[in-house]
Amino acid sequence: MDIILQLTFAGIGVGSIYALVALGLVLIYRATNVVNFAQGDFPMMGAFILVVCLLSAGLPYWLSILLSLAGMVVFGAAFNLGVYYPLRNRSYLPVLISTLGASILVQNIILAFYGPQPANLPALLPFRGFQIGSVFLDPQYIVIIGVSALLVVLQYLFFEKTLLGKKLQATSQDKEMAGLLGIPVKRMIMLTFVYSALLGGIAGILVAPIIYFSITMGNAIALKAFAATIIGGFGDIRGAIIGGIGLGLIETFGAAYISVPYKDGFAFVVLFAFLMLLPQGIFGEKIAEKA
């Protein structure tokens, strides 16, 4: 029983990370119809700015986090202007390739200026974790689960209860119609990228103390986040959350009870099953076909 609880905790913890990145992925997909291949670089970038501020410049933790979040706002805006905006009237393929190129570019710029060394970031909470029965809880995972839950609630309220949120939804559902109704589509898309980058940055800041900062840290997470999005469906932010946490649990239990070496395989077996049997995911899109 203890083992099941321990595995559940680990699965939800790692799943929350996938979920946070998947949220950003869904938002950009809904706004632009493009899967952003650089989504994994958002967490990497957030963690990287934290590493530079905290470890290289020696700033306090809270200020470093604020600077990192501010940096992600700028990064999201620059990403929109540089990677998406010039190609916005083309089909999805050029944009997709553009995001792929951006990912390689960002990773290699950091490699060139900062170097390849990974870095160890201190955890947000200063204590090492505690024991409940024989279950060990890493405080950083508790922070991750808590922050993820909070973000989901805030995001739900924002999208469903505010005018700006509804404008964003309208934009993602039908750009032309939204434009005709006087919604500033360009600005909405800009906002989506900024928010998505911010979400990714938060995920990076939260996860770096656990998996350490490295330039390629986002690659594996982004792949899992993508799988989570397919499982959950692209239509709904609930899908990203359930897909992400579900994937974390499947992986962890699969590794514990079936085979550790095939841990990554389980994610993609499930992905494959969903593509075959339930291609729209657990939560389908609000409108079946997008214009």
Partner: peptide
């Protein structure tokens, strides 16, 4: 285990 794992709880248990 496969490289670049984020969590090794099952292995450690």
């Amino acid at each position: 285990f496969t490289s670049n794992s984020q969590d090794l709880t099952p292995v450690v248990l």
